[in-house]
Amino acid sequence: MIDLQHVSKSFNGITVLDDISLKVQKGETIAILGSSGSGKTTLLNIILGLLQPDSGKIICDGRDITKESMKKRAFNIVFQDYALFPNLSVEKNIVYGLRNKKGLSSAKEVADLIELLYLSRHLKKSINQLSGGQKQRVALARTLVMKPRILLLDEPLSALDGVIKENIKNRIKEIVQQFQLTTFIVTHDPEEALTMSDKILVLDQGRIVQFDSPKNIIHHPSSAFAERFILQQLLIKRHNIFQLFGENDAG
Rank of each mutant, 00 (worst) to 15 (best):
L194K: 09
D81Y: 09
N170A: 12
Q129A: 14
N128I: 08
A139Q: 12
L160Y: 02
I150W: 04
L144T: 11
K108G: 05
R99N: 13
L104R: 15
P86S: 01
F85I: 10
Q136A: 06
S69F: 00
K92I: 05
K165D: 02
S126Y: 11
D64T: 09
T183A: 04
L157S: 06
S89R: 12
L123N: 06
S131V: 09
S158F: 04
G97A: 03
G133M: 05
N93T: 11
E109P: 10
T183K: 07
K173C: 08
F75V: 12
D154P: 15
L157T: 11
Q80T: 11
E166S: 12
P148Q: 05
V163P: 12
R73V: 02
L152C: 08
I127E: 00
S120F: 00
K108D: 15
S126D: 13
V145M: 03
L84A: 07
I185L: 08
Q136S: 08
V78C: 04
A74G: 12
D81I: 10
G132W: 04
N100Q: 14
R73K: 11
D154Y: 04
L160D: 07
L130M: 07
S126L: 12
E191L: 13
A83K: 15
N170C: 05
M196T: 14
I172Y: 01
Q134H: 05
L144M: 12
Q177G: 06
D198V: 05
I94K: 06
S69H: 07
G97P: 08
R121Q: 15
L151Q: 07
L144P: 11
E155V: 09
K101M: 06
Y118M: 13
R73D: 00
G133L: 02
H188N: 14
I114C: 02
L88Y: 09
L144V: 11
S131W: 05
K173M: 14
Y96S: 13
R149Y: 06
I172W: 02
V78M: 03
A83E: 10
M70Y: 08
E166V: 14
T183E: 01
H122N: 14
L153A: 05
V186F: 00
I168A: 02
L119H: 07
Y118G: 12
K102R: 14
L194M: 09
K124F: 04
T195Y: 02
L113K: 11
K173Y: 01
K125M: 07
K165N: 04
I185Y: 01
G103R: 09
E91M: 13
I94E: 01
L113N: 08
A193M: 08
L160W: 04
G132L: 03
K101F: 06
K67P: 03
K108Y: 06
A159W: 01
K165C: 03
Q136K: 13
D81V: 10
K169T: 13
K71D: 14
D112Y: 01
I94N: 03
K72W: 03
D81C: 09
T187K: 05
E115I: 10
S120C: 00
L113R: 10
V138T: 11
N170S: 13
L84D: 08
S105G: 07
P190M: 04
E191I: 13
I150P: 02
T143Y: 00
A111K: 15
